[in-house]
Nucleic acid binder design. Structure first.
Lengths: 346, 346
DNA sequence: TATTAGCACTCTAACACTTAGAGTGCTATT
DNA sequence: AATAGCACTCTAAGTGTTAGAGTGCTAATA
């Protein structure tokens, strides 16, 4: 009889348990696993291994006479050590690309379709965070009077986004003065993120003392309109319907809790903003989430880049029993396609 | 014994049935109604009236030994002839106003919060359609080169919205020429809706034949960027969770169908675009909806105005058993507050 | 010594059966 | 015309029963 490394046998059985459970949503018994291995081991042997895995807190039994189900820790081990990358089919890629690169859609449309693409392919709910303007780098500004009391500022960022801001102004600013201010701001603000503009100008204001002060003050007033610093983090959501097909939500109460968590958005927003700083795919399984509302869910996030700068993030959320491999590849793919599309949109 | 107009007694009993059923979600029997009228009539009498109402197809029995439930036709009669306007409480108004007039939010934020306000107060799902730019009236345009090959157009509308559009352009347009084009477009397009600009300029192009042609052609090319004519109709949605508290969705299958209908958006979009043309509240009960997916739901819509022009619409969707009176007043109130807020946002 | 067959035991999910109660329609009475 | 009384119907909830899936333990086996 061939000698098998016990460690590795435990691994492959855990792997089989996770994949079978993800697939069927029913606790998996020793018989099923034995068949999966074409009876290379007897159910009894597998039961022994299962007892070990349960000892290690990687799997558990919902009740005494049921099969095993992976624990959060079990999924974590699976994701970290067993998961092998899963490629998307041509068909799947084509569906995603069609949704994201649809002609004639504005940014909101693209965001909405990206979240729909996530949920459609992964069969869990999808989230997309809009490009964060505050993180975008200032490139160019144009100012002009639209009437006696209002000035329109148009700001371009290096990642290609445009931000408008109208401000009311009591005293009339001459065209000449406006041009000087425009020139000044353009030379001064290059390379600064939109979120930093305010504090940058304030600092500048403290340094300058002479006649330049009034000029600078006025320039700042024009820019410091609340509009520019408004919250620009919005979450697009899709997949409420498809999530309901999972048996974990057969109980309407759990379904409601899940939907409430999705609509609350605050928790997810802060998670995404946090995860955005690290590149690539991040996974939060069950109780690993600090947010108590999603402690029986898993959240997978991925940043996306426009012109090589991270400006936003996308996410998938569903029961801990999800196809992690697939979700990861889908998010990676969509992140990259979304970035490309946004570059094109300008 | 006092003589009572039979017509009016039928009405008041139908009214009682509808209100009791909306309130309790259980088929209402003759005893309950009798108690509602403080036993002014006996259950037996009421049963006779109920038989009449059933004859008229205003109410029905889910099964032989159950109480009565209003039919679509019954709700319609109730809404048209029995419903009395319901005022919002101070508290409710304050919740709505806080949500909509929150400082530091951009348009998307306001839309999202408006839909949340609808669902929060009415306890059914809320929809908000973004301001339709195509319906907005052209007021002013500014054009400038952002680099050698790209021109940024900023269009202002009379309702106060701003629309950006960047276009790629092979040959360089001089600053002087750009100014001439700007002036031309500003004088020419005043009062035209954004949706009509393209056809207007095309018509103009056919009339002109001389040297002006090239100039006009160029102006049009700049404006006719696809971006300007992109789909700008987005639906914001909230209340998936709260809709789940209704017993009609105890069956997960119906819940899924409802969510699918909400996420599909196409049907709702066309309904809203249609309803927008008439002012005020419009109600679609159950089978009155052409869309088969929502034939067991009711949809209530209301347009909203910015600077006295209808630019968008809001809606509530839920089971036919909904508090029509309340939903109507909430939509009216939110429509008006939303309009005000958007005027302020500029 | 590691694996496996056998067996008693446990728990769930499904089904059948029963019953209380809410509600009706009809008929006879006021 | 309105109502009380009554037989009838249907549902929802509770109770028992059973089949079957799965386990852990022990003893046999390679």
């Amino acid at each position: 009889m061939k000698k098998v490394d016990i460690e590795s046998r435990q691994k492959s059985i855990l792997n089989a348990i996770v994949e079978s459970y993800v697939d069927t949503a029913t606790p998996v018994g020793s018989r099923v696993i034995a068949q999966r291995f074409r009876n290379a081991m007897s159910p009894a042997t597998i039961r022994n291994v299962m007892a070990d895995l349960e000892e290690m807190d990687l799997i558990m039994q919902p009740h005494t006479s049921a099969g095993r189900v992976p624990t959060d820790k079990g999924y974590r081990f699976y994701v970290d050590s067993l998961l092998e990358p899963k490629h998307l089919t041509r068909e799947e890629e084509s569906i995603i690309n069609k949704l994201i690169h649809q002609v004639g859609g504005d940014i909101e449309y693209v965001m909405q379709n990206a979240s729909k693409a996530i949920s459609l392919i992964t069969n869990v709910a999808g989230f997309v965070l809009t490009p964060r303007l505050k993180r975008s780098i200032f490139k160019h500004i144009e100012l002009f009077n639209i009437d006696d009391s209002r000035i329109l500022a148009v700001i371009l960022t290096t990642s290609g986004f445009v931000k408008n801001s109208i401000m009311e102004y009591e005293e009339h600013v001459t065209k000449h003065e406006l041009m000087r201010i425009t020139e000044f701001l353009n030379s001064e603000l290059e390379g600064i993120s939109l979120g930093e503009i305010k504090s940058y100008l304030t600092r500048k204001l403290l340094e300058e003392r002479d006649s330049f002060y009034t000029f600078l003050k006025r320039a700042m007033d024009i820019l410091a309109v609340p509009d520019l610093f408004r919250a620009d983090d919005h979450l697009y959501f899709d997949g409420a319907a498809c999530i309901m097909s999972h048996p974990e939500f057969a109980d309407i109460k759990r379904a409601r809790l899940f939907l409430r968590a999705c609509e609350d958005k605050k928790g997810l927003l802060s998670l995404l903003n946090q995860d955005m700083d690290r590149e690539g795919v991040k996974i939060h399984i069950g109780k690993e989430n600090v947010d108590s509302e999603v402690q029986d869910m898993s959240i997978v996030t991925c940043n996306y880049e426009v012109n090589n700068m991270t400006v936003g993030a996308i996410a998938a959320i569903g029961p801990t029993r999800m196809e992690y491999g697939k979700v990861i590849s889908v998010l990676k793919h969509i992140s990259s396609e979304l970035g490309k599309e946004l570059e094109g949109l300008g």
